[in-house]
């Protein structure tokens, strides 16, 4: 199983466990984690599941894919995009990501 910890802007944390075929976004939505809205339902169309991957995990999670990078770029006027920025719907959870920490931004675009 793989555990993902979601860190809220106020520092509070929630750790959720995955054994299904889920992305970081699905796991958050299924566990009622605040701050991940995923208005489009996980198809990189809305940017409302944006998270900052913890610095220690950026390499292991890897960079955004091509379409995702275009989306993040388009969002960069509205929200702060950093080296750890990812759309959580595009991070498919594998055993290698057990222990992953992601930080939830204060605001999601348009929400």
């Amino acid at each position: 199983m793989a555990r993902v910890t979601y860190v809220q802007p106020d520092g509070s944390e929630k750790t959720c466990t995955n054994f299904e075929g889920m992305a970081v976004m699905h796991l958050a939505i299924g566990n009622l984690v605040d701050g991940i809205d995923a208005l489009c339902g996980g198809v990189r169309q809305c940017g409302t599941c944006h998270v900052y991957v913890d610095d220690a995990w950026i390499d292991r999670v890897g960079p955004p894919g091509e379409d995702e990078a275009i989306m993040l770029d388009a969002l960069s006027d509205a929200i702060a995009i950093t080296a750890g920025s990812r759309l959580s719907c595009q991070i498919h959870i594998t055993e290698e990501l057990d222990g992953l920490r992601v930080h939830i931004p204060k605001e999601q675009p348009g929400v």
């Binding site: 199983m1 793989a2 995955n18 054994f19 299904e20 075929g21 889920m22 992305a23 996980g42 198809v43 719907c89 498919h92 959870i93 594998t94 055993e95 990501l97």
Partner: peptide, 13 residues
């Protein structure tokens, strides 16, 4: 239980 083991509802996009 490993990730991607329980797939009754499918997975991914």
């Amino acid at each position: 239980v490993e990730s991607n083991s329980l797939i009754g509802f499918g997975g991914g996009m």
